[in-house]
Design a protein around this nucleic acid. Structure first.
Lengths: 197, 197
DNA sequence: AATAAATTTGATTGGCCGTTCAAAATAAAA
DNA sequence: TTTTATTTTGAACGGCCAATCAAATTTATT
């Protein structure tokens, strides 16, 4: 026991969030309880209630943490490229890469999005967060600029954005193709470009 | 109270399944309990346990019922068309139409797929049911035949199938585009054809 | 009509849940 | 050091859950 036994609040909050992510992946949302999270983090249950106003608050903070992680990773990769075509390719590659290397985070995110509901009982997966979906905005901006520069053909940007993001999400779930991440990325990118060019 | 008070077993089972679908949509998987389902169906909780071996059994039967409903609907529409291109268009249109007109069923299906886990704790959404995913098989067959007849270009059928199904799933969730079902179907089909031709 | 089989009820049981809170431990401030 | 603020514990509470089962009701058979 050489660790500092008490961490300041912010570090403790992050520790709890990380424990929540682990438990979400291991047992699923339905079986995720505060006592399991507390156990995973080696703290008492009461401490979670001290740092978060309740289970819902903890879940929401965990979701924000997960969304932020993915956003930062993908945004950075996209910004390194200059042309819309290259940015689009970077977007796809980075999305697949993030899902490949942060599988635990992605599963936790799925568990939350498809389970949590607002106080008035609306599932998170049906919420239209027009202003909060940063990845969607980024992708749409790439598509629009590509159309302006004539690299891309004339299509409805939101529809194509939906197709691309659907393809990325689906590929995380269905591993029915027996391809490596690189092979899959190459084939997916080729088809998407065929569609937008 | 003019209904027959007692139904035979098969009818009772279906009644319970339909009540389960309603409760799943209204309250979400997490809050779905046998007593709520019993209440919705105006029967006692014990009766559910009499007709199903447990909650898990009921959920699995509900899932099979939902998958079957969608499968029959789409399969029929596809079989009415002759060429791979027309079959593909019918597949997309029927998938979107089913989701549009059976929203309650689709939400219940999502709630189950993203929550239920096998006894050894594998989420349903990660199971690779190679032999059980009839819709995937149907779509792949269409794509392969289209390649044989030279209507479609040379691509990896499973990858494209994943893209198409992802686009369809995603479109149910993200209604960020403000298009009608018909408009969306038209634009989506156009883009998909651009990709496979 | 009498008996057997199938169906339905509803109360009960034991278990896990999220939250609360007084008391203890630690850290910070004076 | 003394005092105050922050952090942590762990037990206790009320609530809902899935499952069980004996008793009651209805249907089928003889």
């Amino acid at each position: 026991m050489e660790n500092k036994q008490y961490l300041i609040a912010e570090a403790r909050r992050e520790q709890i969030i990380k424990a929540a992510i682990e438990v979400l992946r291991e047992t699923g949302y339905v079986s995720t309880s505060l006592s399991k999270i507390a156990n995973k983090a080696n703290i008492s249950t009461g401490l979670i209630s001290y740092h978060f106003s309740g289970k819902e608050d903890l879940i929401n903070n965990t979701l924000m943490y997960l969304v932020q992680q993915e956003w930062v990773f993908i945004k950075e990769k996209v910004e390194q490229k200059q042309t819309p075509t290259k940015k689009l390719m970077a977007f796809i590659e980075a999305s697949l890469a993030y899902q490949g290397t942060n599988r635990e985070n992605n599963i936790a995110l799925i568990e939350i999005v498809f389970n949590a509901r607002t106080p008035d009982n609306v599932p998170y997966y049906l919420i239209e967060d027009d202003d909060e979906d940063l990845l969607n905005d980024l992708l749409q901006e790439i598509l629009r600029k590509g159309q302006k520069s004539k690299e891309f053909s004339d299509f409805h940007p939101q529809v194509i954005a939906t197709v691309i993001r659907g393809a990325i999400s689906e590929s995380m779930l269905s591993s029915q193709h027996k391809l490596t991440l690189e092979e899959y990325n190459e084939k997916l990118t080729k088809s998407i470009l065929q569609m937008v060019k």
